[in-house]
């Protein structure tokens, strides 16, 4: 009886684990597929108009002032934090790889949800970055939360 229970337990855990792995894989594939050429093109258009003058054409930012967007946790990490920076701006000193950046970023809340989603997706998939897309619905949810 005990043996049977153990076997069932092992099978169950294994099953859950297997299931989780499959889920993870599916998710990843879906995310990569979402980044379409048109999203990137729209994102680049927004980037050139509103971001490039500070973060530069190569995404490298400006020494001591405007942070780089290349492979930083701000860009590749928590989506919520990234969306909030775009919506609300950033007025705190940040440190990346031992360098401090101090310039003020104004709010870009005047951009539409889709524009913010596209530009952040563009940034997360440019300058050597590779990360999942951000959807307009995610921007919308965080914008609503703020109110």
């Amino acid at each position: 009886m005990k043996q049977v229970l153990t076997i069932i337990l092992i099978l169950t855990i294994g099953g859950i684990k297997l299931n989780a792995q499959t889920k993870g894989k599916t998710k990843k594939t879906v995310q990569t597929d979402v980044v379409s050429a048109s999203v990137l093109a729209n994102g680049q258009k927004v980037y050139n108009q509103y971001c490039l003058s500070c973060h530069m054409a190569d995404g490298g930012g400006v020494q001591n002032m405007n942070p780089p967007l290349i492979k930083t946790t701000y860009v590749l990490g928590d989506k919520t934090r990234l969306i909030k920076i775009a919506l609300n701006g950033l007025a705190e000193e940040i440190e990346i790889d031992g360098e401090v950046y101090t310039n003020v970023m104004p709010s870009h809340g005047f951009l539409k949800d889709q524009e913010i989603a596209d530009v952040l997706t563009f940034v997360r998939n440019s300058f050597g970055n590779k990360a999942s897309a951000i959807k307009a619905s995610e921007v919308k949810a965080i914008r609503a939360e703020k109110k």
Partner: peptide, 13 residues
Amino acid sequence: SNSCQEQDRGLRS
């Protein structure tokens, strides 16, 4: 500040 705007460096501020 850049230009003493209500929102520093903001659009049309």
